[in-house]
Design a binder for these strands. Sequence first.
DNA 1: CGCGTAAAGTCTACATCGTAGAGCAAGTGT
DNA 2: ACACTTGCTCTACGATGTAGACTTTACGCG
Lengths: 225, 225
Amino acid sequence: MASQKPRLTRELVLSAALELVDDEGLDALTMRRLGQVLERDPMSLYRYAENRAALLDGVSELVLNELAIFPSDPDWKAQLRRIAHDLRLLALRHPNVIPLLVTRPLSTPLGMRPLGTVRPLEQILALLIDAGFAPTDALHVYRAYYGFLYGHILNELQEYIVDPEENEALLRLGLHRLPAKDFPRLRALAPVLADYDGEAELDQGITILLSGLEAHLYRGVPATP
Amino acid sequence: MASQKPRLTRELVLSAALELVDDEGLDALTMRRLGQVLERDPMSLYRYAENRAALLDGVSELVLNELAIFPSDPDWKAQLRRIAHDLRLLALRHPNVIPLLVTRPLSTPLGMRPLGTVRPLEQILALLIDAGFAPTDALHVYRAYYGFLYGHILNELQEYIVDPEENEALLRLGLHRLPAKDFPRLRALAPVLADYDGEAELDQGITILLSGLEAHLYRGVPATP
DNA sequence: CGCGTAAAGTCTACATCGTAGAGCAAGTGT
DNA sequence: ACACTTGCTCTACGATGTAGACTTTACGCG
């Protein structure tokens, strides 16, 4: 017969949860469904997460842990750029998790968030401070940077259609529903919308932002050598 | 006795829904609860919204309608700046709705969104194109702009604590929970985090972004006279 | 006026959800 | 061999979204 059930662990539970979310969306992640995937009674899950909410937090944490940050890199601009691209890829890998990443912190004060979700903040602060920024400026840079980054990801995911074949078709079909009178420019842009290069767009945006930050902020921070 | 129940309308239902969300959060918006507020059977709501999801969309739409955009203003930079501040205030007025605004489009292709939520896009495109941008560039500008804007709002709302008195206390209390070894910079920044001026931060960000865009994009677009 | 039809609102019922609380089963230290 | 802890299961409860049949109200037209 099938595999003898191995002992459950938090990691096991969370990664099963993540898989479920990746495959079938956030709503599919119910206690009962997850229990079923793990061949356990739903109630057993409460050993490894207090709530469903805590479970969601755990999934966020798990995903964010996929993001590598090297706070000791002296080339802060390159590092920020790389992180941005990494996070973008992460988002494309786990699009269904993004709502969690974006939404849960809104109802959780900084100090009570899962540590894994606060760590990137600390590490980027470290990166910037080590690169010569005053702590306060580092915070400002972080805010502008992360704000822009999350904004871009949300933007891109909004326009992202899963099936790359029907991509254009779906888009046009969608746009076709808009009243021509009220949405002329949008409809006219349909072809452009259809081939959206998120990577390039992000990269340009980061460039603009970084050079802008550099210009407007305190001097004395080394540019890329 | 009390008011004779007036006939229900979509507007009535939606604004009651919005009020409920504003007052008690998204989770409080259940069919039953809303029915109770309107002194109607929960089932009657289905005349005015197909689903709970559709109801949520309606609320998004209602909120976004509070945002005024004047696409004919020739001073696009000033207009974008003003819209940014307006949207920020809107977000602070309806913080509980923001998760909706940000999350629902992720699961709804452009063409199937409530018209009210697509209109800002159209109008900003109009604004930019009328100001002299090529349509494609207008789209790029829009993306960078709206991305940054939403990013900022999410950022600010994350750090926003409802009770302005306990503000600092709560923040410190929260940060106090973080292990000192792992989060030294973040903890050191507690005082700075406590007095966050979202308006200023947004304004600077917009400045950086707009001048950056202007510099990197096709010339021939008039700067503010 | 009245009556037939459509619209608005209600009632009942069901599947599904999160989770409390009591209990069972296997391992562990003494 | 025995008490305890730890992992897991069972049963049960209240709440939710919503389908489908029903009743009530409003209204146009003879």
